[in-house]
Amino acid sequence: MRTLIIIPAYNESQNIVRVVDNLIQNFPQYDYVVINDGSHDQTAQICRDHSYCLIDQPINLGLAGAFQTGMKYAMQNHYDAAIQFDGDGQHRPEFIGAMEEKIKEGYDVVIGSRFVSAEKPKTLRMLGNNLIETFIHMTTHKTITDPTSGMRMFSRRVIRILATEINYGPEPDTIAHLIRSGAKVCEVQVKMDDRIAGESYLNLSRSIRYMATICISIVFIGWFRQKVDLGKEEVLS
């Protein structure tokens, strides 16, 4: 089984070396690709200096755009699975193996969840997480304990959709819509680290906008969207 680690990176010059060197040294069994999303800092230059596997987008397309570039690369190179991986070192590669096992069992989307067996803390951020969990449960009857986790692995037939369709960004509403379309989704317990350097993209007004978009997309627009044809299930050895 061939798995690709997609690392979207926007202004991650302080983190990218630590993240990628860890992958190269300790997890050489996985292929990876860094997608530089038109960073203003030295991210691309650092990747070239270290001769990392890099796709350098000349302009900023946003996380969804960078993620889709990675998916297109995965599709072009016939990977069996692709995982979305943070450029700031929040995600830990030691959990990728367990997620791969689930893909081999025939799951289409495997979410690296912080809360399968662990308790969800009662913070404002997790209130949003809970709300999305509730809406996904309401509309799909499936419990996703950590819908906002950015650590998600996708099977080959889902990679094709994410790479080519619009409105399939790396967000919880995509997960909800894939469940509705018949994709098999499961979660694996993982641990995540806090950001070490740099600042988070989400501030208050962006968070409100994000929540509004995701919630309306799940509970309202989802009803009217065309279900996507996933194609045949593939059996991996």
């Binding site: 619009i166 409105n167 509004a212 978009t213 627009i221 065309q226």
Partner: peptide, 19 residues
């Protein structure tokens, strides 16, 4: 708006205003 989302011609994030 909904018809154009269905036809994959409108981004969901752009539809929010119209909703």
């Amino acid at each position: 708006v909904l018809r154009n989302i269905r036809k994959s011609k409108l981004l969901i994030s752009d539809s929010l205003f119209w909703i």
